[in-house]
Nucleic acid binder design. Structure first.
Lengths: 322, 322
DNA sequence: ATAATTATTGGAAACGTTTCCAATATCTGT
DNA sequence: ACAGATATTGGAAACGTTTCCAATAATTAT
């Protein structure tokens, strides 16, 4: 059997309480500490996490729930969350819901079963308020319910600015391709901003914004180009949408940025394999991750936190615009 | 405080043992079962996972350690692992090592602390055999140590076949671009196969195979094209390598597949945003994931498992070859 | 009807920690 | 040297399950 705190106590000729105090930095004589540490070393003792959790009524685990891991935006976000969780001493449980509501429910269940201390939702469905009541939850881009804190970026203003930017660069026929979230989300503000600016300048909108299963972007983009072949500027809402738009454009023979200028809304595109740099509204993914983990951490510790936090995006001038 | 099994017992006028038996399918009278279930429902009782784990000396959690999540191959693999883990009733802890050896060590530590029951390594470093002794580990593409079971694909033969295929399609100047793993891995067999076939036909090798940080593929590919501009066939070892090679080729003005044919070794490219389909040696990612989870599961249950399992790849004829 | 099984049950012990309390040892100031 | 404070310690209780054992209830065979 595994070696326990009791074995250590016996070996060091002290009580179990003393060993525990050595482990957790309680008040203990230097001489005894030496003895205990030696025993711990000799026996290769490792404290049992489960027992620790049971006694403390805390798991030290938080979860992050994303619709899909195999996606540049979400996996970048998840890695940033992992970093911050690490720093704050949390273990991270990563779950990809795969659009299955059961998977999402299982997270709520894990909270009730005290398998995790809290969770970050970056995801699709509405859940029963009663089930969620009092659970430490936070989310990205949308309020899970009235009380659940969330972090977002300034979708509306940044998009409006980006569209204006295209206009200032001479675009006359500006299109919008996007992937609509399933539930209400501040991401929808991008579409609204686009439409508002189009209206302001009296330009007819050219828009495709469907609910898209990851991997099917190309179909949507192709249909967009089919409907609006004369487009000279595109705002692509989302990481993969932008990549797909760019690739489709060059495969179709558009010359970027001469015939067609592209602006993307999303992450940093550090893993982009083109030598082109996409002009983009960059979401501060790392900062969003950091903030949301801190919010969750605070909630678990019983602190008050603001319900809505808006972080600033950054405009990156690449070479897909003039 | 949370409602416990004791509260349920009191409410149903039975002993705690009976409640436990209802929960775990022990022998209990139908009439009493009803009573207990009603109490469970009334009180919204959820069994505490931690207590359960402590008593059973099992966590029901396995970990998968990948070098990086934000990468098409690894995230696809991880999702497949999650699927299979789910099916077998395991919770999955996903960890991205980010090339940090401490992160890898932390997994070994979690085993010793009984925070997880076992782990799947898809990763970089060598570890101390003593630390790993007796721990339920498995890995992908390489033996972590002599005894650690692993699953791989038929790298050598599939690569040799692919190169021969290029030759049969008329390629005279065949190049190899790859990303070398840090430690010994069966992935290296791809390079060996390429060299062997080149030697067999008396063709001079054109090769770039460095240790590559994900995101830096383009630099490598550019230098390859710079060194061998006259190449007419490329074997790209790995998911991102192939994508980058394709994009670089069309950006540089090669016409694919007329001037240049490309074969990729790796996953299914389902998320590929081009309308082109890459000709590829497709690794059975889902099957590898499934097999490795089963192996680990068996090990944890004390069963014997084969130390090496080789799965067959599948050749996909796309349109990046003639 | 009675003995022998079998089905069902309650409750204590155990899993490996942390924490509290009481007890002892060591110190301080006079 | 002594009272009072402080530092250090051992060990029991508790965290919420599961499981074992003994006890009782229900069933069967004779």
């Amino acid at each position: 059997m595994a070696v326990t705190i009791k074995d250590v106590a016996r070996r060091a000729n002290v009580g179990v309480g003393t060993v525990s105090r050595v482990l957790n930095g309680g008040c203990v004589n230097d001489k005894t500490r030496e003895l205990v540490l030696k025993a711990i070393n000799d026996l290769r003792f490792k404290p049992n996490s489960t027992a620790h959790r049971l006694r403390k009524n805390r798991t030290g685990v938080i979860a992050v729930l994303v619709p899909i891991i195999n996606h540049p935006f979400f996996s970048e976000f998840v890695e940033a969350v992992e970093d911050e969780a690490d720093k704050l001493g949390w273990s991270l449980l990563i779950v990809s819901s795969q659009q299955k509501i059961d998977k999402e429910k299982s997270i709520i269940d894990k909270i009730h079963k005290k398998e995790i201390d809290g969770a970050i939702f970056v995801t699709h469905y509405k859940h029963d308020e009663a089930d969620m009541r009092g659970c430490p939850f936070v989310s990205i881009d949308r309020p899970l319910s009235d009380k659940v804190p969330y972090v977002t970026s300034n979708n509306y203003q940044a998009t409006a600015d980006a569209i204006e930017y295209l206009i200032s660069k001479g675009c006359k026929k500006i299109g919008y391709v996007g992937s609509k979230p399933i539930v209400d989300s501040e991401v929808l503000q991008r579409e609204k901003a686009y439409l508002d600016v189009m209206a302001k300048y009296g330009m007819p909108p050219r828009i495709v914004n469907d609910v898209i299963i990851h991997g099917d972007e190309r179909k949507t983009v192709d249909s967009f180009f089919n409907d609006y072949p004369d487009v000279d500027g595109i705002f692509a809402s989302g990481y993969t949408m932008a990549q797909t738009t760019y690739l489709a454009a060059i495969e179709k023979g558009y010359s970027v940025p001469d015939d067609l200028q592209i602006i993307a809304y999303d992450g940093s595109f550090k893993k982009w394999s083109s030598n082109y740099i996409l002009t983009a509204v960059e979401q501060p993914i790392a900062e969003m991750a950091k903030t949301i983990v801190q919010r969750l951490s605070d909630i678990i510790d019983g602190k008050e936190v603001p319900v809505r936090t808006v972080l600033e995006t950054k405009f990156i001038k690449g070479n897909t615009t003039k």
